[in-house]
Every structure is written in C-alpha cells, then in structure tokens.
Design a protein around this nucleic acid. Structure first.
Lengths: 331, 331
DNA sequence: GTGAAAGCGCTAACAA
DNA sequence: TTGTTAGCGCTTTCAC
C-alpha cells in the first residue's frame, strides 16, 4: 500500500503538505494541492486509519453493542443509527453480547481498545451489566439505549413507555374494552420491563380502571406469549395488553390454537411494531417506535456529552391500529 | 491510560520485556514476568489495540458486511459467525450496506482502512457490487457469504439450494402434491435467486414433473408473497414452493385473506426457517439453515486462504416439516 | 533472557 | 504556505 511518503515523493512536497491536503486541516497552496491529489490518485493512495487513530486518538468509528441482534427489535434501531452516523462521517461497528455479561464486558473492552469514539450500548441485564458499563466509564462517551443498568451511570435514550401504553389503553377503552390484563416480562433485571409495568398501571388509573387480572409476567418472548395464552382468564378479560410484539405474536397464536376469536372475544395489543406485526393473523395493533428519532437522540447525546449529570431522552411512539383490536365504528 | 512504558518503569524492566510478557511472544524469566504482570494489574494496564495493529498490521478483528440486517435471514448468520470467531479470539465488527452499492463500497473500504484481518461480505447485488468487491481484492482475505457477485472473485460459502429444494419437493410429492408452482425472486441480479430457480427445476425433473404454472418471480419479500397469492392459479396448483420464508409468510397471509385453506387446498413451503416461520398460521414447513455449519465454513475459508482459485462451500439445509404441508399419514 | 533502538503511517508543533 | 522533527504505543530485530 502506498503511504503518505510515497505520495509526498511523487508530488515533490513534504509529508506534512500531503497530510494537510488529505485531511483538509490547513490551507495549502492550490498548486501543491493539485499535485498531491494527482499523486494520491495515481498511486491509489488510501488513508491508513489505524495510524491516524494512533496519532489523533480518534477513529471516526462508533461502537454499538446489542444483547441479541436476532431479537427483531434491534435491527431497525441499528439501521437507523447507522444511517444517522453516516451523515456525520462516522462508521458504525456493531457487536452482539449474546445476552451474556462476560461476553458483553469483553466486547465493550474490545471496542474501547480499538479506540472507537463512542459507544452505544443496550445492556442486557440491569444488574449483571453494571460492571461492564462501569469498566469503560470515563474512557470515552457512552450512552445506553433502550434499556439501562441500575444507578443511571450514563445518558439514556429509549422509548417513552408511558405514552405508548397510554395510547394503547386509550384505544382499547375507546373500543369498549375495559377488562384488561397486562402480559409482559418480569421486571427483576430488565429496566424496560419495570417501566412498562408502571406505564400500564398509570394508563389504567387514568381511566379509573383496575386490571381485570393480575399481570402475567414472564419474558419478552414469543414462547412466553404462547404460554400466557393459557393463563389468561378469558371469562374476566376482553383485552390483552402485551409488553411487546413478540409476546403479542405468541399470544395471538396461542389464542387461535385455543379457538378464541381476536378481536371478537378478546383484543390484543403489542408494542414496538416489529416487521412481523403487520403480517400476523390478525395483523397486530401496536405502537410504532420512532426509529429515526431514537437514532437521532442516541447520536446527539453521544456526540455532545454534557457534564451536568446523566440525561434522558424518552421518545414517544405512535399508535398503529390494525385488526387485533376492534375498529371504533364497530362498538 | 497507562502505557507499556508505565508498566516497564513500575516493574523495573524494559518495554521489550513487558511486551514479551503481555503478548507471550517469547520466553521471559518467571520473575520478570511476575513483576510485569503485577505492575500491569496495579496500573489497570490495557493493550492499545490501535498501536499494536499499526505495528503488526493485524487487528484481530474481522469485518462483516450484510445488505440489510433487518432482513431476518442475517441475524442468525451473524450470531453464529460471531460465536465462531470468538473461539479464535477474533472480534466481529458488523456493518450494513443498506442495499446500496455506494454505501457498500464505502463500508468495505472503511473496514479495510481499519485493517481488519478479513472480511465476510454478502454482496447485495450480483453486478452492482462487483466494483466494491474488486476494490478490496488482494488487500486482505475476503469471502462472500450466501450471495456472490459475478465472476467468482473470491471463496464463497452459502446454502446448498439444490439439496434444500429437493427435500421440499420430495416432501410435497410424498404428500401427494404434484401440481407445483415456484414463487420466488427474479434472478437478474441476485445469485441466490438464480440458483434457487435452477434447483427447483432440477427437483421437479427428478420426479418427472413439470411445473403446474410458470414460476412467479418478484422479490424475496413478504409483500411479493402477498401479491403472488393473487396470481397463483388455484385451479391448477396444489403446492406452492416459495423461494424463501418471507415470500411464504406473505403467501400464507394472502391465501388466508382469500379464504384458501392451507394445506387442505394448497400446500405452502418456505426456505430458511427464520424465526417467524414457527409462529405463522399455519406454522411453515421449510428448510432450516445450518447456521453453525455456515459460520464454520466462513471462518475456515477466511482464516485459511488458498492459492488454488476460488473455493465453494455449499451447506445443505435440513427439512423442517410443520403444518403448512399435509402430514404424510393423511394422504 | 534482556535492553536499546528503529519504525509501523500518520499528524501537529514549531520554525522558517 | 511549507518543511523538519518528534512522537502516538507498540513490536521486533539486533546485540549483548
């Protein structure tokens, strides 16, 4: 590979001049500039990003760490963040922590070791991930996305669960459903699960309602939705609010298997609007994440750190009505 | 951050000795080793991977570039590759080319510039991606996964489509379905589409069958399956072989909307076994990718380049029978 | 087994 | 505006 020296020699200037031209760091005589550009072109010169990073301590790279890329929630976020960073001339390197604290810590260090300019992490567990996050604090800008570990260590960007569930509950109530149950994940070590539980409580209270059945709390997964379908008290419930789309999709499948009509007998709602929400049967009423707004907030907070303690950006999702809830005219 | 010099000073040895201990590159007196380790520990020393990469031209990092991570096919592959690389002490940095040749080329260069030790790429288009792949050829090990560009430029790892569709067609025929139609993607610029078209042809021929209807060729997407549902000649067809699961899922939805019973009136098969194949209604009979075997082959070829021209590794998938095809007893 | 010294490719004072 | 020079933090001859 051609180096800056080769270019300098061919252009008949010093390496500094080449560097200045190539990194536009300072004005250079147009003539020299032209010679440098021509020489670089001729040699097929490419910046050595590693050398540059060593020298400047900046890599123009942002690391992102998600717990499990096969969770269909994350790809949409990753794509939005990537597009957003592209506009800043930054490239995104994505890593997967495999929902394992040890892997998560290693990946995080690997990213830091390679001098990424910042990290966006979705910690997989509110307590098990604390050490990993702590381990890189202060060494580079870090923000947490979607979930967060205990103790508000960093800025956080996530979903405005309160608004989301209020939209959903409002919609169900407007459709005449008031006997609701919440099926979600156990809040123990997942910050989203806790927030969503609170959000549904608040939304019910706003209508002067109480839950028709104690919340069914398992995991944010299809299988749990499937299981939970058998635990819903169908004699007491006419609306099932699920903690996310995966649960709702499993629920839909479980209800169908049991011969329960949706939304006739019971309405079902999801949360996130992952791609399969649209083609489930019936298509799922849910709340759509504003991926671009989430990505925007992530990048903004990451690139403009503040000293005034951790900031939060909760992005409100929007209602996406489909056929798993009754249409309003029908009531 | 502590550097190797700090460690050397504290340990009372030279930087070379520290380097040798920390990179296990040569035997060092046990006593010096202990001192170095203690000093490193005390200072919280961490390797500067950038400096090391500059010096050695190795980054212990592999780049992977997929066309669109939100295509549910890729996360499973990415996860398998990541786990596999982990075992080699390599970290995977994933990039997304957004199905755009220009972005793809830039990402590829970004990866190369950062001196990754190898790249696994799924080119998004058989012709539009040629330039990007060519541009990095010879600069580092490159393999193509799943799809490939024209002209067999590099090693390739992918799915054994022939075996896959043979399994599916055998299964349909065994279930008494012989009036089959293939619904897939137009083969123009997608190497998988071409191979799958050929594979289905071969599978039909092996049974002395001809297609009940000309193949319906669109895109590898849910929407196309939905559209195609209206174009299937239901009077002539009793089995619909789809080019991938996304199409099949759309097809299922389209057929249900049209009141067609599956598999009673018509059977439907997919290809890939993405996670939602299991919870569609009815659950989709498909062919399951052997993700670990695919990942294994990717890593093996990448890490052991050969000079004898491009190699191919086609990994056979396995049949996954669910309810979108008749059970064999029923026939 | 160990240390001194050179240098990976680049940028940024500093001096001219 | 340009060149000289020193180093970013590390590895690796080479000499001892």
């Amino acid at each position: 590979m051609a180096t800056i020296h080769d270019v300098a020699r061919l252009a008949g200037v010093s390496t500094s001049t080449v560097s200045r031209v190539l990194s536009r760091s300072r004005a250079v005589h147009p003539e020299s500039e032209a010679k440098v550009l021509a020489a670089a072109e001729e040699l097929g010169y490419r910046h050595n990003a590693v050398a540059r990073a060593l020298r400047t301590s900046r890599s123009h790279t942002i690391g992102m760490l998600v717990p499990q890329i096969s969770n269909p929630f994350f790809p949409a976020l990753v794509e939005a963040v990537e597009r957003r960073l592209d506009r800043e001339g930054l490239v995104l390197f994505l890593c997967d922590s495999q929902r394992d604290a040890e892997v998560e810590a290693r990946r995080l260090l690997a990213l830091v070791d390679r001098q990424v300019d910042g990290v966006i992490i979705t910690p997989f567990d509110a307590t098990a991930s604390v050490a990993a996050v702590r381990g890189v604090l202060g060494r580079l800008p870090v923000i947490q996305a979607i979930r967060c570990v205990e103790g508000s260590l960093t800025d956080w960007v996530g979903v405005d669960d309160e608004t989301g569930f209020r939209l959903l509950v409002d919609h169900l109530v407007a459709a005449g459903r008031r006997r609701l149950v919440f099926v979600s994940a156990a809040p123990e070590t997942n910050s989203s699960a806790q927030r969503r539980l609170d959000a549904v409580d608040a939304a019910l209270r706003a209508h002067g309602l109480t839950a028709a059945q104690e919340p069914l709390l398992g995991r944010f997964e299809v299988d749990w939705g499937l299981d939970a379908a058998e635990r819903v008290d169908l004699s007491a419930v006419d609306g099932i609010v699920c903690g996310n789309d995966a649960i709702a999709l499993g629920m839909l499948r479980g209800l169908r298997r049991a011969g329960v009509s949706v939304p006739g007998q019971v309405a079902v709602t999801g949360f996130d609007d992952i791609s399969y929400a649209e083609i489930s049967d019936p298509p799922l009423t849910t709340v759509r994440q504003e991926w671009d707004a989430l990505a925007d907030a992530c990048v903004r907070l990451l690139l403009h750190p503040s000293d005034d303690g951790p900031r939060c950006a909760a992005i409100a999702p929007t209602l996406q009505v489909r056929e798993s809830t009754p249409s309003l005219e029908a009531t």
